[in-house]
């Protein structure tokens, strides 16, 4: 029995349609502060709940635990730890990537949450869960207040 079966619907009679849907996504108070700090100062900020003593990264406007409004911003530094990672070898269309992409969840000391990002300046076989990494920022003139203003994370001492 073959493992590969025909799944291409374009081989049967059909009508082709698409839906064009464009949006803007408002960053909001916490999101704007977070991305502005990355763009202007190359700093990764969290929001701290003084009552629960939790620092949220990425920052939120409210505490998930006690529902208080959060207004205290904390610089959590550029270094974190790989909580988990993967090496993607295909793109969104299923085509093989020329160069595999390493994705990771990076957690920061003393913070709740973390950042999903790419890992660079190393090889897939060198990545380990628990290894230290640090953010590499794009040059300031290239930054646009986007998560991609961080180019990637690289292995750190």
């Amino acid at each position: 029995m073959s493992l590969e079966k025909i799944t291409n619907p374009l081989h049967v009679r059909h009508w082709l349609g698409d839906m064009e849907a464009d949006y803007i996504y408002t960053l909001g108070v916490a999101g704007e502060h977070f991305l502005e700090e990355i763009k202007e100062n190359g700093r990764i900020m969290g929001a701290k709940c003084p009552r629960c003593n939790i620092t949220y990264v990425p920052p939120k406007m409210y505490c998930e635990k006690c529902f208080a409004k959060l207004e205290k911003w904390v610089d959590i530094g550029k270094k974190g730890v790989v909580h988990t990672f993967t090496v993607a070898t295909i793109d969104v269309d299923g085509k093989k990537l020329e160069k595999p992409v390493i994705y990771a969840l990076i957690k920061f000391e003393g913070a709740c949450g973390g950042l999903i990002h790419k890992i660079g300046e190393t090889k897939p076989e060198k990545i380990k869960i628990g290894m230290k990494v640090e953010a590499v920022f794009k040059p300031s003139f290239e930054r646009k207040a986007s998560i991609n203003d961080i180019a990637y994370f690289k292995p750190a001492e």
Binding site: F85, A88, I116
Partner: peptide, 22 residues
């Protein structure tokens, strides 16, 4: 997430690879 995750691009099943690994 459109602001934090989507701009990274790629095949979204990378999330499953990360989860399996952990």
């Amino acid at each position: 997430d459109p602001i934090l995750n989507r701009p990274l691009g790629g095949h979204p099943y990378y999330v499953a690879g990360m989860e399996m690994n952990r």
